[in-house]
Design a protein around this nucleic acid. Structure first.
Lengths: 132, 132
DNA sequence: GTAATTGCAAAAGATTTGCCCCATT
DNA sequence: AATGGGGCAAATCTTTTGCAATTAC
């Protein structure tokens, strides 16, 4: 494990993500939130820390059709993401059990797998109702 | 359906994607390929047409952890994507049947779904072998 | 004291857009 | 002839990076 320091900036960012139950904030949203307690924090620092925390496995990056910029979340049990393409919200949904027990390694050309990202795009109940 | 013209540029781009069985090119790769037959085509035109073709449902955009820029593919049967994080290649793999028959609509807060994007990240057989 | 980390600003990379001209219909 | 679409370049947006100053250890 490479040497690292426990800075206030890093702690604040991790904390924001730990509290963000399912808001899946972008780097910029995290930046604006962090500024409330650290008015001088820079966007570059936010990005650097997000990358650091991702490498440590403490936060997860979510890049997908459905939004232009990356979103982030604190590490929590495996789950999938549902993106409402009408209101641009992102929700955690259970990862179907069948996917976790699936034998990926026998699927050519896969050798080993690190992660599964499942994104479901559609309309959420609120937006679906509003369409009627 | 909104009015549109059948330009040489648009045809070339669609053709590149139809032929690209599983190379999943980026906009820039498509641009360089298109220049072989249309030396004056611009990158802006490539992007405009990719967006147009995507809206028409003729091509699919692939945005995911695993690559910084969007990749594209011609429309073909539902499948998932496997990204080798070592050589940055992307391969089509079958979409597990269990996902297609899954009853998403009863999973709150989903109302209706449009698409499923499944990305499996890991090492491909070639890279896995090279690690030994 | 040393080196990791910050803030700032500039740079880089990806994608979009305004404008004027050209080509498809 | 009408106007959708193209080329070019500038603009925008997201993310990264170089550097000098700061701070955790």
């Amino acid at each position: 494990m490479k040497k690292s320091r426990n800075t206030r900036q890093r702690a604040v960012i991790l904390n924001i993500l730990r509290k963000s139950q399912s808001s899946h904030p972008t780097a910029d949203t995290i930046y604006r939130e962090a500024r409330k307690s650290l008015p001088n924090i820079s966007l570059g620092t936010v990005y650097r820390n997000l990358n650091f925390l991702r490498e440590q496995g403490l936060v997860r990056e979510i890049r997908s059709n459905g939004s232009t910029s990356s979103r982030f979340e604190g590490e929590n049990p495996p789950h999938a993401h549902f993106h409402c393409t009408l209101c641009n919200s992102v929700h955690d949904i259970p990862l179907p059990e069948s996917l976790q027990s699936f034998n990926w390694e026998e699927q050519p050309p896969i050798s080993t797998i690190n992660s599964l990202d499942l994104h479901v795009l559609g309309a959420c109940v609120d937006c679906g109702a509003a369409l009627v």
